[in-house]
Nucleic acid binder design. Sequence first.
DNA 1: ACATTACGAAAATCACGATTACCACTACTA
DNA 2: TAGTAGTGGTAATCGTGATTTTCGTAATGT
Lengths: 204, 204
Amino acid sequence: MKRPYGGVNADDRRAERRAKLLLAAMKLFADRGFQRTKITELCTEAGVSTRNFYEEFEKKEDVLLVLHDTINATAMHQIRARLSTVEDAGLETRIGVLVGVFVDSVTANPRAPRLVYVEAVGVNAELEAQHQQWVAKWARFIQDEAQRGVDRGEATRRDYRLTAYAMVGAITGLLREWQAHEPPLDTAEVTAEIKAMLLSALTR
Amino acid sequence: MKRPYGGVNADDRRAERRAKLLLAAMKLFADRGFQRTKITELCTEAGVSTRNFYEEFEKKEDVLLVLHDTINATAMHQIRARLSTVEDAGLETRIGVLVGVFVDSVTANPRAPRLVYVEAVGVNAELEAQHQQWVAKWARFIQDEAQRGVDRGEATRRDYRLTAYAMVGAITGLLREWQAHEPPLDTAEVTAEIKAMLLSALTR
DNA sequence: ACATTACGAAAATCACGATTACCACTACTA
DNA sequence: TAGTAGTGGTAATCGTGATTTTCGTAATGT
């Protein structure tokens, strides 16, 4: 029934193929575009058969869904980890860390911004829903920082809901530009701009 | 050869059909999504035959391209017109007008934001290029206002390139939220938030 | 009123790519 | 080492939708 094969456990091999598919998808979706990438091409690039594809995913959109979620989740984990090391720091420090880690995380793989901010947009309702959820999460994240600032007397006490959404949009827009621009924008400058913008929005 | 038909000139009829196609496309692209809209459906909705479609457009993407361009161009024309009536006003006034007219223009048809900020993203290189061009135009527009502010001593003298891009992103993000949110966000609040954000970014 | 030309709807064609089914092969177990 | 189950690739199949063609109809001008 479920015996090992090729020296490796069956589940491990599946996981292996899944990883290869995700890798290949990251590359092709970002470079040629999601629509233009055919399932066949994806499998060829991954060195895997179409049958394997359907063992792991139901449809192409699902691959994108996973990638989109992973990129966001990774960034958030990294930020949370780093922020916990400056628990009691002031607004400026924490915002600096937040923005810095976020930009570094998302631009670490230059394909990631293209994938999340361009290719994953307007694909289907499921992806739109996941986008919405992440935007909401990031917005809440920023609002929490604002609240900290308020508690410390470093930020104005007011409703930050729309501000937070706007900031998420600004970051998104800047990173979308970053990946599209030729010559590429300077990451450090982008980081600095976002940080300054956030601080001025939280203390206005 | 080229004789009038149905009482109307041939060119006029073509223009009529083109308009009907654009109308129908606005509706279907926004409501069902660009991808999911079939050319056949589009023609049915427009009350026009597929043949007519190919007389006016080469492919579905071209319709979206026109709509995207029109929505942006309309907004920009309206803003320029209104701004020219407050030629010598202060930074706050002009920014207020700019933002107010922009939001009103783009949200006048609730389908427009969805079309421009969701459906038109990641479709093909041509549309990406047009998007880039408009973002650049809007960014330059904001930079020009900033320059005015600097000249009047109402804004800080510095490089506004990235700030302008960030602001365009923030507006885009907020309007994308506006169209996706249930219950819908309040237009006036959105306008106020954008205005405040812009002013704080230009005077920081 | 008739011959002629434009027009539009619907049907036929055509292509592409997703999905499935089959077959050959490999690595286990007895 | 033979038998068998698990595996993977390739080769059909199948469906969908874009594009083209045909054909009946309507409008024109003579």
